[in-house]
Nucleic acid binder design. Structure first.
Lengths: 198, 198
DNA sequence: ATTTAGAACAAAATGGCTATTTGTTCAAAA
DNA sequence: TTTTGAACAAATAGCCATTTTGTTCTAAAT
């Protein structure tokens, strides 16, 4: 047989736990809930997984693997690096978007946490978006950005600011400020010339 | 006089509160601490600010305004839109980096909160970075990305992934999934061709 | 009239206690 | 090898008393 009995039950636990996490999030899902869903005693779960966290991690890993399998497949179909990159970006955003809706209970748990962060970020976002917008506007007037339309400025500006925020946050919260400077050089290179000119 | 007495004291409160927030963060700084630092009774603070949150917001706004004044100045010096954009990005990352060190107590408070988020993110980051790296590697081999060096792949890949994460997170946590698709189109446009070709 | 602060109040945090729930371990049974 | 009930530990929830903290108010000082 392809899967040992052991692996079948592990997978069943994963599947049922996944359903529960999607409905109720990590905190409100108990080991008893999972055990009941699988139809076993809760101590049995520990025969298959070391802890609740390990189950959650395994569920996430399972989703992640599925997502990145789909991404890899899409990437593999494309002949050039740029085409691969496009496939990667498009499929990935799409997958992430779907999974964030699926696990919205978990998203809520994350959202509820950081009041402080969200307030600070909101303030910065709006000012930065204004600045970027004004720069784009300027380039539109001077003719530097000739293909850009007035109506597109807002979304483009917000997208650029968000992408920068991602780089910042990764550096700050990941304690990688040391690498930030080199990262900015790369960010700039791509921002200006695009990866086609790498 | 330029500043009314009222405004002078408001500014003094701001300054002292800022020091305390930098040292102890938002939660561990009390109104009494601030009042003592200013040399007034704590009830007096309420003559100048509606609440503790308003003080914190004002401190953040003050920092934010200073930062974006410096950014605006740097941007104004540049003649072209692309040069302005470069000035914006460089100065902003630099300022954000500095302020995140200055207010590290607040950063800690934010960090301590989201265990779940950080674990999930870490898993995704590493897989995504691997994929992007392999794509870049491919482009390097085929000669599409001729100027790219082997040793640069890691940091560039991580930077690209982080920038995408920023766009995702803004959409997910900001409940703006509806706009995400259009944002991705913009992200792709810039990623491939750079803003110079906008 | 403006500014201050003490006293008072309300809300939130703290600590100690118990009870409950939940996560984990283990020995024994199936 | 797999399962479970019982037992244990750790976290949570409730409750009260206490303290701290945030906020309001009124009266005094300027």
């Amino acid at each position: 047989m392809l899967l040992s009995k052991d692996e079948i039950i592990k997978a069943e636990v994963l599947q049922e736990a996944g359903k529960l996490f999607r409905h109720f999030g990590l905190n409100k899902t108990t080991m008893e809930d999972i055990a009941r869903a699988v139809g076993k005693g809760k101590s049995t779960l520990y025969y298959y997984y070391k802890s609740k966290e390990e189950i959650f991690d395994a569920v996430m890993k399972h989703e992640k693997d599925a997502i990145f399998k789909r991404i890899q497949d899409a990437v593999a179909l494309q002949p050039t690096a740029t085409a691969k990159m496009e496939a990667y970006v498009r499929v990935k955003f799409n997958e992430i978007s779907k999974i964030s809706v699926l696990y919205q209970a978990v998203v809520r748990e994350v959202q509820n946490c950081n009041e402080i962060e969200r307030n600070i970020r909101k303030g910065f976002d709006s000012v930065e978006t204004d600045i970027v917008k004004s720069i784009l506007q300027y380039g539109l007037v001077t003719g530097e950005f000739s293909r850009l339309k007035q109506s597109e400025l807002d979304l483009l500006a917000f997208t650029l600011v968000s992408s920068q925020r991602g780089v910042e946050i990764a550096a700050i919260l990941g304690n990688r400020l040391g690498e930030l400077e080199a990262q900015i050089d790369w960010y700039m290179e791509v921002l200006f010339n695009g990866i086609k000119n790498l």
